[in-house]
Design a protein around this nucleic acid. Structure first.
Length: 263
DNA sequence: ATCTATTCCTGGCTGC
DNA sequence: TGCAGCCAGGAATAGA
């Protein structure tokens, strides 16, 4: 499941293949193109040149000489350079050098074209690796929401997903059901640092390959080996050996140590 | 503002 | 071994 570190890894591996390339032809199947006119988008892309590829939250932003593509990988979306098409290939970009495929078994991913700013990406909150501590504290203080759903809210912060929220809360010693506005400044600052640490380390390890995530060159990430709570239900806490607990918060599986993480 | 439930989708797992 | 049923979840959406 691609979150900020995985999307960042995809962008880093993708950009060298795409920048300054010309799209000779594009072809889409399935409903992952929004709004739904696939052939119109294909016609729009033919002949365009890719100028820049970057990440915003969990979106891959592809700047063209005319217009912008915002690609969201959803749960199982993959962008693959020079790979063989399979039964879950829903997009094919033929370039002047190489072919880019969009693969997505569960079809939760989306691709959106816009003339100027991508609409969905413009609703995002600040980047967790860019926001200043003061501003983070200020934003946190104004919210009465529980901290886990808040961190998952892309309008609050862009890029955090289920894995990294659980991991950051564990590192900070904060219970996922803690109320954001009631966290002390010290604990909120610890959350800020934990979040940045876990994201930075995960990017260094090229993300987490839980199910079938791979980067644009087909390489898996390694960070799943370093998860402390995510996917470790009933296993011993790495700090205190209390069994890691799994509950449901905001319809998401939520992993935490009941002893190390306080409300 | 904040919460919950629902929808989309398929591979992989569980249990009989 | 086979198969039904459930679960995983990012984000939009609706309704409380």
């Amino acid at each position: 499941m691609p979150e900020l570190p995985e999307v960042e890894t995809v962008v880093r591996t993708l950009a060298p293949h795409l920048v300054r390339r010309r799209i000779v032809a594009a072809r889409f199947t399935s409903r992952f193109v929004t709004p739904g006119d696939r052939s119109k988008l294909a016609a729009r892309l033919a002949g365009r040149t890719i100028q820049k590829v970057h990440r915003r939250g969990k979106f891959i932003i592809v700047a063209l000489d005319q217009g912008t593509l915002a690609i969201h990988l959803g749960m199982t979306g993959k962008l693959l350079m020079d790979a063989a098409p399979g039964e879950h290939t829903h997009g094919v970009f033929t370039l002047d050098q190489g072919v880019l495929l969009y693969d997505d078994p569960r079809q939760f991913g989306r691709i959106e074209w816009s003339a100027n700013q991508p609409k969905r990406a413009s609703r995002l909150g600040p980047e967790p690796l860019e926001i200043a501590l003061d501003e983070f504290l200020l934003r946190l203080r104004s919210r009465k929401s529980r901290v886990k759903p808040l961190l998952l809210n892309q309008a609050f912060l862009a890029g955090m997903g289920n894995i990294y929220v659980d991991e950051a809360l564990f590192l900070a010693g904060i219970h996922p059901l803690a109320i954001a506005s009631r966290l002390s400044s010290a604990r909120a600052a610890r959350l800020y640092q934990s979040m940045r640490d876990v994201l930075t380390l995960a990017i260094e390890h090229r993300g987490s390959s839980i199910s079938d995530y791979v980067d644009a060159d087909g390489r898996r990430g390694n960070f799943q080996m370093l998860h402390r709570v995510y996917g470790r239900e009933d296993k011993a806490c790495v700090n205190c050996e209390t069994p890691v607990k799994k509950i449901v918060v905001a319809q998401r599986g939520t992993h935490f140590c009941p002893k190390c993480q306080k409300r």
